[in-house]
Design a binder for these strands. Structure first.
Length: 304
RNA sequence: GGUUAGGUAGCUCAGUUGGUAGAGCAAAGGACUGAAAAUCCUUGUGUCGGGGGUUCAAUUCCCUCUCUAACCA
């Protein structure tokens, strides 16, 4: 099967991905598939640095503002939906361009996560959550040893999220997650062309610090307050997001404005660092210096 | 000028009954196939403010200088 090339622009937060997309649109007839796990939510605008109304009007963006803030969403779901969107864009004769900072979302779209069609019940998840808080991570880890040896060896760091995930899959299906990974491969007929926008670290951190101030001045606190006023719980996954979790603390009176801004800046830097770790390992990654002209030139020249 | 409390890792501090020191945070690196802006792992040598003294040995005791804070003049 001949694989279709797919342009993917990644990069840490605040590295100018949106702007790069806008530049590209002047040269190519593109539609953007956003691979961003937070811009996908409705109501979260300022803190997620969503593209502006004008930008959204200029280029058709997919997967922005399309999930309720209290919905359970996942990378796998995104991967499948975005793949359909990708096929549709191709069919209409346009060029799809993936832009985003969520590494796992990009992977889910371009490579596909494993696919077994299993939906895990809330009951199983809640039970495991209780076991974690009552019996502790070591007990769960031991459960994993008995049910899924490869995962047991893989998750030596005792990351509760990953152990929980492996166990819930096992309890729901009776099959080890590691086995399912090998059994249900999901190959996509996509040949991704990865481009990463690169900034010197201190310059990137400077941009992040500046942008957080902008967000605050644009009314991040008001936006957060109005979401809470609608009755949504502060513990929603969507609100467990850099920018919002600190602002919630501020609104609750736990920290000052200055502290909130500092914390958001710091946590955004941490986030950016994790993104860079993820992107660095992508094979055949084209690294583009942070000059928009070069971004367009590099991308257009490499797709033909 | 005087008194007191301090000057220990980038920051906030702990500690050594004298044998050259350790936490948290920051920072850096890493993992991550359905919660991923999430979650988790690894990494700590620094003239222990300067100088002198006592001692086999001082960052730790003594003297002195210096800086900071508070209070008293």
């Amino acid at each position: 099967m001949k694989k279709n090339k797919l342009i993917v622009i990644c990069g840490a937060t605040a590295s100018g991905k949106t702007a790069a997309g806008m530049m590209l649109a002047d040269y190519l007839d593109i539609e953007i598939i956003s691979a961003d796990s937070r811009q996908i939510y409705k109501l979260l605008n300022i803190g997620t640095a969503k593209p502006t109304h004008n930008e959204l009007k200029k280029i058709h963006h997919h997967f922005i503002d399309c999930v309720e803030i209290d919905a359970n969403y996942s990378a796998g779901e995104f991967g499948n939906q975005a793949y359909q969107t990708y096929l549709d864009i191709i069919k209409r004769g346009k060029i799809p361009v993936v832009i985003g900072g969520s590494g796992l979302y990009i992977k889910a779209l371009c490579e596909g996560l494993f696919e077994s069609g299993i939906v895990i019940s809330q009951e199983i998840k809640d039970t495991l959550q209780n076991e974690l808080s009552q019996k502790g991570i070591e007990w769960l880890y031991e459960q994993l040893r008995q049910s899924d040896m490869p995962s047991y060896l893989l998750y030596k760091d005792r990351n509760p999220r990953r152990i929980l995930r492996a166990l819930e899959y096992y309890r729901a299906t009776g099959m080890a997650l590691s086995k399912a990974h090998n059994l249900y491969k999901n190959n996509r007929d996509i040949e991704p062309l990865y481009f990463a926008i690169d900034y010197p670290r201190d310059e990137l951190y400077g941009r992040i610090n500046g942008r957080v101030h902008q967000m605050w001045d644009m009314g991040l606190a008001n936006e957060t307050q109005s979401v809470l006023n609608m009755g949504y719980s502060p513990s929603l996954n969507a609100l467990n997001t850099v920018g919002y979790k600190e602002t919630i603390q501020y609104l609750q009176g736990a920290i000052t404005t200055e502290k909130a801004i500092e914390e958001i800046q710091k946590n955004t830097r941490h986030y950016a660092k994790r993104q860079l770790t993820w992107f660095r390992k992508i094979p055949y990654l084209h690294i583009i210096p942070s000059k928009t002209r070069q971004i367009v030139e590099t991308i257009t020249s490499s797709i033909y």
